[in-house]
Amino acid sequence: MSLLEFFHWLEYLPLLVTMRSSPWLFPAIATVHLLGLAIIGGAVLVVDLRLLGLGLIGQSAARLTRDTEPLLLVGIASMLLTGPWLFMCFATKYYYLTAFWLKLASLGAVLLFTFTIRRRVVRNPTIAGAVPKLVAVASLSLWFSVALGGRLIGFP
C-alpha cells in the first residue's frame, strides 16, 4: 500500500465519512484546534518576547517558562488531539499540498527545538548576548510557519 493509498483508506473510513457529512463535527474540531493555536501563541510569546528583551522583562525567562509550560502542553495536546481528525477528513487533498508537508516538517522541528535547545538556553541564566535572541527568533519563525501552513491548507 502506497502512502497515497493509505491516506485514501483513512479518508474513507466510515467514521470519517460520517464526520464530513455532519454540519458541526468538523467546525467543532477546527474550533478547538484554533483555540489551541491561541493557547500556544500566548505561552510561546511570553517566553520568546522575554528572550528578545520585550514583554515581561521583570521576570526571568526560566521562571516564565516554568509558569507557562502547563499552558504550552495543554495547547500542544489540544492541537495533536484535533489535528489528525482534520487531516483525515481530507487526507488525499493534503497529500498533494506542499504547505501540508512543510507544516508537518516545521511542527516536528519546532517541537524538537522547544524541548531541547530552547529549554536549555531558557534555563541557563549564564547564556546571554545573541544566543537567547536567536533562539527566540528561531522559535517564533518555526511556529509562524506551522500556523501559516495550517491556514494555507484549509483553503479549497
Binding site: 493557547i39 501563541g41 500566548g42 510569546l45 507557562t68 499552558l71 500556523a147
Partner: peptide, 25 residues
C-alpha cells in the same frame, strides 16, 4: 488567524492571571 495567536494568546495569559490560575507569583 495568525494575529489571533498574539491577541488571544496574550489575552488568555492576562485572564488566567486574573483568575489566579497562571503566573500567580
Amino acid at each position: 488567524v495568525l494575529t489571533l495567536a498574539v491577541f488571544l494568546g496574550t489575552a488568555i495569559i492576562v485572564d488566567l492571571r486574573l483568575l489566579g490560575i497562571s503566573m500567580s507569583r
